[in-house]
Design a protein around this nucleic acid. Sequence first.
DNA 1: AAAAGTACCTGCGCGC
DNA 2: TGCGCGCAGGTACTTT
Length: 298
Amino acid sequence: MPELPEVETVRAGLAEHLVRATVSSIEISDIRSLKRNVSGVQGFVQELTGSTLESVVRRGKFLWLPISNSRALVGHLGMSGQILVRTPDFAPDPQTRVVIHVKTQAGDPLEIRFVDQRLFGGLMIDDLVPTSDQLPAGFSPEAEASAVIPSTVAHISRDLLDPHFNAAAVAEKMAKKNSGIKRVLLDQNLLSGIGNIYADESLWLAKLHYDKQASSISKKKHLELIEIAAEVLRKAVAQGGTSFDEQYKNVNGESGYFSQSLNAYGMTGLPCKRCGTPIKREAWANRGSHFCPKCQKR
DNA sequence: AAAAGTACCTGCGCGC
DNA sequence: TGCGCGCAGGTACTTT
């Protein structure tokens, strides 16, 4: 579910409440939400309890909160994850898997609730390792960004809104791929932050068919696509992300408004806003692709 | 090595 | 009413 704009909305909300907060206790009601956490449930609880949260950093769709110079709490929302910040008296949220009880800098108790219907998301504690380019690892405007990244996130490429994202270099790599352009856009090892919604939206704006071979597209067109996609992500961040249902919420449980700006995703059968042809949905790679059959020719 | 396919989960809405 | 099926914002692992 959540792509860069939704994750950024969550990151900003967490930062607002949690900078300088300390962890008082942890409740884990479903251990399946601790993903790839090598220290186990015990290690997770022991290491996090008593730690101070200094900042919230994001690269692509991954979030992390450093708890020391070498360790961080890492989170990913998967398809259906939410991180809610609630006061202790707030009604229980269905499908809450982990609760981290904290005390804010002002001394107020709060709960960080990790909620996840499908369990594709998860939390872990991981080592922070130097970034391969020695540059700040991700987006964290509230604090000085460090050039360290969780080991499990190190393979994720810089995202389209990262100041150190190198569009020309990425466009060059894209132009060499022997895959359909949508598969390339979704490759988080090449460029990160885009998922199924924003891929379909970017391709509609660029008038590209999702299965057009990337190697048949010029480097200049790839660069244009990158710029279009970055602009879509920026606009969606400004709207608080895209919400269709109960699956995406910010840390206060509120929906975003970008769904009102969608041109292709979820618009099956509705007229294309450029030419009036009905938007088509095709099954593709175990999901769906939405496009205008007239504007976006293979 | 790169590209494609599959596994991991729960729950909703649809047609029969 | 009930059931099976398709569908949902992603990533990691396996296979070709």
